[in-house]
């Protein structure tokens, strides 16, 4: 009984936990990019296929362009104990890059690996 009372008395000392998740743009572009046909799809068709306009357009040499469709994921976990707070955020970003030639025809599609983020609390260490 005494232990239970101590436990109940200690509960208010637990300030609280923190979970926060932030998604940046729509990760669905990675799947939608599979509908792009190199050699056929034109740059002006990309917004319809991808469901949004590119995040950025990167000029290459000879009039070639890269259309980048970026997205990301960030997870924050932590806890507050009275006056003391610990938290860690793991974030990762990715993008689908569509390469077009000087005539505006898609030549190939590359992507950075899909973001993989873990929930972690401890902010110290390597």
């Amino acid at each position: 009984m005494k232990r239970l009372l101590l436990l109940v008395a200690a509960l208010p000392l637990l300030g609280g936990c923190i979970w926060n998740r932030a998604l940046v743009n729509d990760a669905g572009v990675a799947a939608r990019a599979e509908a792009i046909v190199p050699g056929q799809t034109r740059a002006e068709e990309l917004p319809d296929i991808m469901g949004r306009v590119p995040t950025s357009v990167i000029p290459l040499r000879d009039g070639r362009l890269i259309y980048a469709f970026s997205y990301g994921d960030a997870k924050t976990e932590g806890f507050t104990l009275i006056l003391f707070t610990l938290s860690k955020t793991n974030s990762a970003f990715s993008a689908v890059y569509v390469f077009t030639d000087e005539a505006g025809v898609v030549r190939h599609v590359e992507a950075s690996p899909a973001p993989e983020t873990a929930w972690e609390t401890w902010p110290f260490g390597a």
């Binding site: 980048a68 970003f93 990715s94």
Partner: peptide
């Protein structure tokens, strides 16, 4: 360039998802 992109994948943006131009160029 093509071999690097195929084997390593393209670089991810950093900080903000629209930072791609800083990390990809010819």
């Amino acid at each position: 360039f093509r071999e690097v992109a195929e084997r390593l994948g393209m670089p991810p943006p950093v900080g903000r998802a629209d930072d791609a131009p800083a990390y990809v160029s010819a």
